[in-house]
Design a protein around this nucleic acid. Structure first.
Lengths: 349, 349
DNA sequence: TAACCTTGCGTTATCGCTAACGGGATTGAT
DNA sequence: ATCAATCCCGTTAGCGATAACGCAAGGTTA
């Protein structure tokens, strides 16, 4: 049923009446082969359907390759990012035996030390850079350009530069999904409140795109009878949020749907719980502990997730496969996972 | 930042004043080692944090291992199963260089030739069996018992035997999610219709579990005001279905929510489209071409998916990692993916 | 023509681990 | 005491691919 043995480089060499060294030179364009034998070997490789043994290749590799990973890391402030860690460790463990090392460079997303971090990272002359930036300054872009966009992978919520390899979620589309979920559960002629917490330069673009998707859904459906109110809460402290929400609900007591465009959905849910505001649909983002807790309690209806663990893992592995195994970098983006109380267990580690 | 070199078996041997052969014997319990050196080597392995190089190990492996994969295969009848293929091919390609071969044994789920297939498969004396059965007869169970449950992985919608390794979706929970989605979008005091298409011994258990989950959700919420009607459609031909649905809607014209407990959701959606029945919520299963088409058109609101491609891939890879790399078999089940018109692109190949 | 370079290719040590092989030391049987 | 069996353990030839090394043939220069 199956052929028990794969074609080896030795088999190809024999058929072509050359040595394994020559075949290897052809395979890796290492030169020192005449055009004639080159063509001959290529023909035979295709004829025999030779596929390199990646295991043996990895073992024989003399040169280790090093990936530099730039990720935001903050303790406590935004638990979302800590989620990367498990995915990173998994990828590291799988790649170490392939001679590929992953150096983690952490930057502070609050103080926005990305640029400095990038500079330090570049000094180590990595073979590829895999980064989850908040924003890319022009200086950063120039540095990456000089490094070579083809050796740069961007991932995470704020990934975005067309010349680099990309692995991220479509923020616009996630907002679109959010609007569908919210409107699906609400009567017509209703008002929904979009809440943006922790607004600053770092995450503003992300929230804007999500909101744009949200609004687009309503436009596409000609839902003129459903109107949107929007509030921005600058701080992320419990007190700030409570105060802002209290004020908001004085004006918008009639609201039956909330769309929280960031990961602080749980804080809104807590407010709803404390104020005993019943019968309000809530759609938010990300599987933080707090969010999951309120999802379970029933104060959040849906969470949209981009599974950071999977995202980091895939970004690293896809980069590896692209650079080392000549595979195409996947065009697919990270799926918009829809999480409810019932299937949440399937998505947490 | 990172250690460039892993501890090798040679390093352990030197520290323990033994040869690599002895360390290898300890690592694989091949015996012929005195209790004393055994303990010594184990201690040093733990001290140094030695982790075998899986790449080198795979390359050196003399004995190829063979997995037998038993999957249902029908052309055209139930496109669901064809989905396995991509996942299977991906896993095969990744494992071939690890010296692990995957032989695919296809059985006919309609004629239920599983038992015969299993018997043929056992004659090839595989190292492990990975099967997606419809049902397991007692004879099948006895055969697998004799083969060794610890070498058996069951996956797919009808997986189920506690002693085997398991990779499947929780059917009950998916029904629960379905009920939540349906009730979320419907007013109270409404009637939902559960439609079961293609009922037979093969998929009956699956549908029952989904329905049980569906009903449980309503019970948990004390939704006495939402009532359930249920119809069973034996055939899966277009005509059968249309006739049954026409009859059903004579009785249940007031219904605003449909839960289709199997993969033939698209056929129901077509009926709705043709009869121009507006304002009906539809929740169903599986990303068949037909289903996706009607999801896109807006006649299906949600599809619950168990991503067969991923399921087959994971079943094979997890079995490999469990048997070959001594990793724990993942306890997590396949997530219940919630698919809408907007995020469906993220989930199709 | 001698001395040198270039081109094109074969040979081989190496990566870390596996497992077959063989041999020294100890024990038991006769 | 001799021989065989058993127990433990070291040695080593692979697995397939890589890349450094070396060398023959032909070409170039002085």
């Amino acid at each position: 049923m199956n052929n028990l043995t794969k074609i080896r480089i030795k088999d190809v060499a024999k058929r072509a009446n050359v040595s394994v060294g020559t075949v290897d030179r052809v395979l890796h364009n290492r030169g020192e082969v005449s055009a004639h034998t080159r063509d001959l070997v290529i023909t035979i490789i295709e004829e025999m359907g030779y596929k390199p043994n990646v295991i043996a290749s990895a073992l024989a590799q003399k040169k280790r390759t090093r990936f530099a990973l730039l990720v935001p890391m903050v303790d406590g402030i935004n638990p979302f990012y800590l989620e990367y860690e498990a995915g990173i460790e998994k990828a590291k463990a799988e790649l170490i035996d392939f001679g590929t090392l992953v150096d983690v460079h952490a930057y502070d997303p609050i103080l926005n030390t990305f640029s400095a971090c990038l500079e330090r990272c570049l000094e180590t002359a990595p073979d590829a850079i895999i980064a989850s930036p908040m924003v890319l300054s022009e200086a950063d872009k120039n540095r990456l350009e000089a490094f070579g966009w083809n050796k740069v992978t961007l991932f995470g919520p704020n990934a975005g530069h067309n010349e680099a390899l990309q692995m991220s979620q479509d923020a616009f589309r996630s907002g679109y999904v959010g609007a569908r979920l919210l409107s699906y559960g609400l009567p017509k002629e209703t008002t929904v409140l979009v809440i943006n917490i922790g607004r600053n330069a770092l995450n503003d673009q992300l929230y804007q795109e999500r909101f744009a998707g949200f609004r687009q859904y309503l436009n596409d459906r000609n839902i003129t009878e459903m109107s949107i109110r929007k509030i921005e809460i600058e701080g992320i402290q419990e007190g700030d949020i409570k105060k802002s929400l209290t004020n908001a609900f004085l004006d918008y007591s009639f609201v039956r749907g909330l769309f929280v465009s960031g990961s602080h959905t749980g804080k809104v849910a807590r407010f709803i719980e404390e104020k005993k505001l019943g019968n309000i649909r809530v759609v938010g983002y990300d599987l933080t502990d707090e969010n999951v807790q309120y999802l379970r309690k029933g104060h959040i209806d849906f969470l949209l997730s981009q599974n950071p663990r999977v995202q980091a893992y895939r970004a690293i592995m896809s980069t590896f496969e692209h650079h080392m195994l000549d595979k195409a970098f996947p065009a697919k983006r990270i799926p918009v996972d829809i999480i409810t109380k019932d299937n949440v267990d399937d998505f947490i580690p």
